[in-house]
Design a protein around this nucleic acid. Structure first.
Length: 633
RNA sequence: GCGGGUGUAGCUCAAUGGUAGAGCGCCAGUCUUCCAAACUGGUUACGAGGGUUCGAUUCCCUUCACCCGCUCCA
């Protein structure tokens, strides 16, 4: 539970984000739309920096990862193969009386006598004159004790001034466990029809029946539940001008599946060999039940995902003799040929933490959560969440999952296209193994494949034959790659960076007046504006011109900002709120030469003011660009 | 989806059944030799819709959004 103090902090952050143009509510002029947020000028720069750093770290700076940019709408069969259409869709139903929501398949089965009502007619009006209101009738029903079991009449109904209806034809039913009198059902029915606007209702009895293990009734009060409605988290749309069932497609709920779907193409065109990875950034969409915590859980969000394909451990063992076991916690160093999935997984966890440290989120602000075996998806072998200590609680930034060969196997089965690869090295190595070793590896691979196929409901005989085929394939150098998936949310990371950078500084001036101002302490690599160029005074043309000239020379290399409005102190403060790490000021000494110190007499220098401590240093204007580039790249 | 709270200027907050106000910010100008200086002028708001009323930002209803709790969450 969030502490009040933490809420205050979040409110300060959201307020600053709006005031300075980091984040706006989507469609604000029309009242906003739940779960959608826009990035303003500063937010757009911040996000762009983060994405570019991820892209360059994950692809350009590595030999073994290439990029992909796939469409948001893909063939709907992809989402059936991945399991999203099924797992994102839960049947839900509500209690007709209390409105409580249930997973239809998880309602505790009930046994007893069900009394059905076909509707209710209005009885005598409790009000002396005019048409009674819902509030009047509900108050009367409460007085008679109809609401006692459910903790009193709802406030909303009591306050209602809506006129009561004269009757209702809506069916209602109550399940009575053995021993409960019929009066209980009538009482609940009266309560139900009262809440539907029927004045002093007389429920119409329809029939009585005995049911066993029914999931249609609320276990807490016996009330009938609404029919189950599918609760689908997938955003649906239609491809083409007709909107029929045949045209249904989905906006992707994650970027990863496109990487699996395009695996063969990427593998064949990129001249990469397993182990290698495919990275992708982009928008994803989920109809979240409850978008909450500012941009943390949005319905439209952006992901940065890597699918890093590795050999199955059996193949690693065949080639190198033995799979290396993790020696200790921490970064295992440069990748080695004898790494199995465990070491690759550990490697990526550490690589990703290193990335966060490199953009200004110290390890102390992060937490690692290793999912317990019972929490893992059935196909996952391990999953680590990297959490950040947000003001509203410690929440997930990124998940790094070892997903076995599940995804490629699914697409192979569902598309009918082979997803395996041929590994020359493996074939050669396998042939040289002693026969008992060959058999042992084939048996293990067979067992793993059989487990997968059986789990997915492939008939036993068929599964056995297919697994045998896969095991024989391994001996010939063929396998379906396994995968390690580091999957990060961009918007969550942006929020983490904002929360981490947010710093309040209270200063008391000479007159004793204290003032609190905000400094956004972004790492220079992610800061939206890298440098502000300021003339000390506005009304001195030589200062203004020189500042403009320096600004022009920098802006092609980085996000630079030029400001000459207001006092110099005010302009520094403005940049502090934007999180600009460096302010360059052109002053009189730029022209007249440095007055004193070791640089005395040197002309054409500027001061650099540091955001976090306000300290200044003076450097030659010609040195400015390399000085800045060394710090912001 | 349920329950509670909130909604007034860019931000923070007032007041009111009868022409909506402040501080800060922002813009322009004067001035200003390093940390939100001063002065002058300007800028902008009752979340939306409906009802009651001569008149509603204020009372009522509906709706939307945000916050908290529940629920949900590969």
């Amino acid at each position: 539970m969030a502490e009040p103090k933490e809420n205050v902090l979040m409110e300060k952050i959201t307020s600053l984000c709006k005031r300075r143009g980091f984040i706006f509510q989507s469609s604000e002029i029309y009242g906003g739309i739940q779960g959608f947020w826009d990035y303003g000028p500063l937010g757009a720069e911040l996000k762009r920096n983060v994405k570019e750093l991820w892209w360059s770290t994950m692809t350009r700076m590595r030999d073994d990862v290439v990029g992909l940019e796939a469409t948001i709408i893909m063939h709907p069969a992809i989402w059936r193969a991945s399991g999203h259409v099924d797992t994102f869709s839960d049947p839900m139903c509500d209690c007709l009386l209390t409105k409580k929501r249930f997973r239809a398949d998880q309602v505790e089965p009930q046994t007893g006598t069900v009394i059905w009502f076909s509707g209710a007619d209005a009885g005598d009006s409790p009000a002396a004159d005019g048409i009674p209101t819902v509030g009047d009738v509900v108050a009367e029903a409460a007085k008679q004790g109809h609401f006692d079991d459910s903790g009193g009449a709802p406030e909303r109904l009591l306050k209602s001034k809506e006129p009561m209806l004269s009757g209702s034809d809506q069916p209602f039913a109550v399940l009575l466990p053995k021993g409960k009198p019929d009066e209980t059902a009538i009482k609940l029915a009266k309560q139900f029809y009262s809440s539907r606007g029927v004045s002093n209702p007389n429920p119409r009895f329809e029939k009585k029946e005995f049911v066993e293990n029914s999931q249609r009734f609320n276990p807490e009060n016996g009330s009938l539940l609404t029919p189950p409605v599918p609760f689908n988290l997938m955003f649906k749309t239609y491809v083409g001008p007709t909107a029929t069932e045949a045209d249904v497609a989905y906006l992707r709920p994650e970027t990863a599946q496109a990487i699996f779907a395009q695996f063969k193409n990427v593998h064949e065109t990129s001249r990469q060999k397993v182990p290698f990875g495919v990275a992708q950034m982009g928008k994803a969409f989920r109809n979240e039940v409850t978008p909450r915590n500012y941009t943390f859980r949005s319905r439209e969000f952006e992901q940065m995902e890597l699918e890093f394909f590795i050999k199955p451990d059996e193949a690693v063992e065949a080639v190198t003799g033995a799979v290396a076991t993790p020696a200790s916690k921490g970064h295992p160093g440069e990748p080695q040929p004898n790494w199995g999935w465990q070491l690759w997984h550990q490697y990526w966890v550490e690589e990703r933490i290193k990335f966060y440290e490199g953009i200004g989120l110290p390890r102390t602000t992060l937490e690692e959560y290793w999912q317990k075996p019972e929490e893992l998806a059935h196909y996952a072998r391990a999953c680590v969440d990297i959490l950040f200590k947000f003001p509203f609680g410690t929440q997930e930034l990124e998940g790094i999952a070892a997903r076995s060969d599940f995804d490629l196997s699914q697409h192979e089965r569902c598309s009918g296209k082979a997803m395996g690869i041929f590994d020359e090295e493996l074939r050669t190595a396998f042939g040289k193994l002693p026969p008992e070793k060959q058999t042992a590896l084939k048996d293990r691979y067979y067992a793993a494949r059989l487990k997968y196929l059986t789990k997915m409901g492939v008939p036993a005989a068929e599964a056995g034959a297919a697994a045998q085929e896969d095991a024989d394939g391994l001996a010939k150098g063929q396998y379906i790659p396994h995968v390690i998936e580091p999957s990060a949310g961009v918007d969550r990371l942006i929020l983490a960076l904002l929360a981490n950078a947010f710093t309040e500084v209270t200063e008391t001036d000479a007159k004793g007046k204290s003032e609190t101002r905000v400094v956004m302490k972004f790492h220079p690599r992610v800061a939206p504006i890298k440098v502000a160029v300021l003339p000390l005074l506005k009304n001195k043309p030589e200062l203004a011109n020189k500042a403009r000239e320096i600004f022009q020379s920098l802006r092609g290399h980085m996000m630079a900002f030029h400001d000459e409005a207001g006092s110099i102190g005010r302009r520094y403060a403005r940049q502090d709120e934007a999180g600009t790490p460096f302010c360059v000021t052109v002053d009189f000494e730029t022209f007249e030469g440095v007055k004193d110190g070791p640089q005395a007499g040197v002309k054409d220098t500027v001061t650099i003011r540091h955001r976090d401590d306000g300290k200044q240093e003076r450097i030659a204007a010609s040195e400015l660009l390399p000085w800045l580039l060394a710090r912001v790249k």
